[in-house]
């Protein structure tokens, strides 16, 4: 069973536009998901330039899925779906 890989963009643009609120996302994971999720703070993923700035903050999930305008709530919901899926 692979872990859900969550990469939070901590480039300064994403940080200013909301990533600062997701820095502690690991602490917000329910106990039963711990160990099934791997969270990493990344330097700029360059999505704010390739995609669009208004879509920041960006999060990359499992290497390919891009979440735009990510919020802690949106991210936790998506992680939940994936964890339930792999569990």
């Amino acid at each position: 069973m692979d872990k859900v890989k969550v990469e939070i963009c901590c480039g300064t643009a994403c940080y200013l536009l909301g990533a600062a609120n997701m820095m502690n996302i690991e602490d917000q994971l329910p106990a039963e998901w711990r160990g099934k999720v791997e969270v990493e703070a990344k330097t700029c993923l360059e999505l704010c330039e390739k995609e669009n700035l208004g879509g920041a903050p960006y999060v990359r999930i499992n290497g390919s899925e891009i979440m735009a305008q990510a919020t802690p709530e949106k991210l936790l919901t998506r992680i939940g779906e994936l964890v339930e899926g792999v569990a």
Partner: peptide, 17 residues
């Protein structure tokens, strides 16, 4: 701090890097 952040973001400078 917001304006400084904008300069850093615009110039692709990540503080942690």
């Amino acid at each position: 701090f917001e304006e400084l952040g904008a300069i850093l973001a615009g110039r692709k400078i990540d503080v942690i890097a």
